[in-house]
Amino acid sequence: MKRWHWISLAVVMIASLVLERVAVHHHSEDSYWWVHIPGLYGWLGFLGCIGIIVGSKLLGRKWLQKDEHYYDGE
């Protein structure tokens, strides 16, 4: 990743957070409490990504991943 890649990503992320704060309003009476969490989708993306990686790898290491020749004798 080059420096300008990171700068572009940061600009896009900050712009989306600012737009969310300024221009996106959840006026609907029946909207849920969690939709008002600032940067909700950013948190979902970041924590969800880490959770999926760590959780899957843990499952794999402890239980699911076996040697490639596991079924060879079938």
Binding site: S16, Y41, G42, G45
Partner: peptide
Amino acid sequence: QLLAATFF
């Protein structure tokens, strides 16, 4: 937001 944060 979702996609950028996933990339991070």
